[in-house]
Design a protein around this nucleic acid. Sequence first.
DNA 1: ATGTCTATGGATATATTATATACACGGTTA
DNA 2: TAACCGTGTATATAATATATCCATAGACAT
Lengths: 168, 168
Amino acid sequence: MKMSHAVEQSLVVLVMLALQKDDLPVKSYLLSDRLEVSESYFKKTMRKLVVAGIVQAIASKEGGFRLARPISKITLLDVYQAIEGIGSFIHSTQLADRIFLSQQSNKRIEDVQQALEVATNDVLTVFNEAEQDFKNRLQNYTIAKLLGHINVDGFDKIDWRQVHITVN
Amino acid sequence: MKMSHAVEQSLVVLVMLALQKDDLPVKSYLLSDRLEVSESYFKKTMRKLVVAGIVQAIASKEGGFRLARPISKITLLDVYQAIEGIGSFIHSTQLADRIFLSQQSNKRIEDVQQALEVATNDVLTVFNEAEQDFKNRLQNYTIAKLLGHINVDGFDKIDWRQVHITVN
DNA sequence: ATGTCTATGGATATATTATATACACGGTTA
DNA sequence: TAACCGTGTATATAATATATCCATAGACAT
């Protein structure tokens, strides 16, 4: 159970785009070079962010990627789910139901069996609650919150399209 | 990012062993048959629980597996970590440090850069906190708690070594 | 409208992990 | 000591993550 590297890569890219001077689109190879990942793989990752409505893609000369909405409306959960999907990371087979089926009909057996099904269903409930705790924490942090130290609307912007980092 | 089926399987097995009559060891093929997994794979899973000190293995005729400690001292986190490992599910590459290295020396650039590193490190911090939330929830539930409905020390025990479920 | 450069989508390849199987070995108990 | 069980190793298969290539479609500048 490991989280994809694409999640961390996406978050770094979003921080970069948030600081892009004049909100100009940045080409994929410029970003993938800095991240030290292949451009092809990077573009597939970015596509997921496009589908999720987090970034905007411009297919044209002088095109590239830029943010699709304000960083105050992009949570860590949005990014996580754009990459990992919205489903749960617990695949719930109905294991308990198959295990405790009784061949006999007997009042006491049925009682034990029902209690067992309750117990095993509770296992899934607890895991789902734990996963929800995880996701709730991610939802409480936006990119804007992470960049709280930086005056994003000020003049400390960077033009990633230049080779060297510049400040206007 | 998916959790292994072995976690759910392990928990079901622990519930079964907790209800085993007279705490007698249960052979692996009896358990793997009920779980509908291969015996070989199942034994590898059980080995992890042995190493973690959760179950005890008896290699002998009339041997098998039984619980190594009381179910009040086996948490869902113990089982999760026995299968998935102790480590984090976030592989922390030091991505941020490689991205924002500046070639120039400039006071304002250094300031922005430092803020960026703070921001990207905060990303990892939040994810680690979220993971900790997940694990804290699991640690708060023991097998005993899940079986709260059942009188475990009473007479409603089951002998999984019999083909049919029996109640003494 | 046309040309240019970009993202897109499909096909495919490789690496890693999860799941599965077979078997020789050693250990424990009856 | 004999019988049986878990252990360890080697190996196979499935699924997924990561990576690459290339043909195509789309947007912008002119």
